[in-house]
Amino acid sequence: MQNGKNYKAWLYLLPAIAFIGVFMIYPLIDVLIYSFEEGFNFASQSFFGTGGYNYSYVLHDPYFLQAVKNTFILVIITVPLSTGIALLISVGLNSVKKFKEFFQTVFFLPYVTNTLAVGLVFMILFKKTAYSDGLINLLITAFGGSAVDFIDGPYWAKMFVLCFYTIWVVMPFKILILTSALSSVDEMYYKAAKVDGTSKWRIFTRITLPMISPMIFYLVITGFIGAFKAYSDVVAIFGTNLNAAGMNTIVGYIYDMLYGNSGGYPSYASAAAIILFAIVLTITVINLLISKKNVKA
């Protein structure tokens, strides 16, 4: 009986397992193998030997180090900021009575808009062309500042645009998740807290936050993973020659190693991919450990 049940359970899981196996586990193992094969050649499908050289090369490649730095800055700035801002907006949305649906729709719009289209909007906002300095620069100059080239200018300006953009893009999803989490908190807890004389701020920190903390952690974890995998957003703003712009990300580096102008190095790409995998795995495990300790709903 027990065995029969087990067997059935596995049978039901089989399609999913097969899919994950073929499209995720197998490639991962393959990449792992590639990453240890030195001087792999696509054309001849041959390699010189095995060892850690690919890792050593990648870890000493200034482009890779730049990409790692960019990615980390992006992650560290955008994940907390976007989650925090989304929380603020959601709490605001939750407390308005009129036009709630309208506002929710407005905030959700970017989610259904194409990344590249949003990228275009950012170009208009930030890019300096022969004809205009971009809207933001117009504002800056209007307030007496000097114009900055956000797309081809100094590193911090480009980073600012990238972070701004990333936060912008992930915001709708986070707001969606958080508003539904907020409205799922039972009204009676607020009533009880009110009778107990709890201040608004304490209600928020002691009741609302703990109750929606599983969702917040979910957003933080997926946010980390998403930000570590950033690539298309960067291309949307800075074009494909990211190394030259100094704005490459780890995924961008991997892509360039494979297909870029200087590409054709699957071994290096694989090594970089494995390093990314290790980073994401570590961060996620740490996140889960922390959340286990703190999230108890």
């Binding site: 039972d186 009676m188 009110k194 004389g197």
Partner: peptide, 18 residues
């Protein structure tokens, strides 16, 4: 409510689960 000095027990208790 907080200045009335009432204690209220709700139908579903409303204990804070966390």
């Amino acid at each position: 409510p907080e200045n009335r000095g009432v204690g209220l027990v709700f139908q579903n208790y409303a204990l804070y689960p966390h």
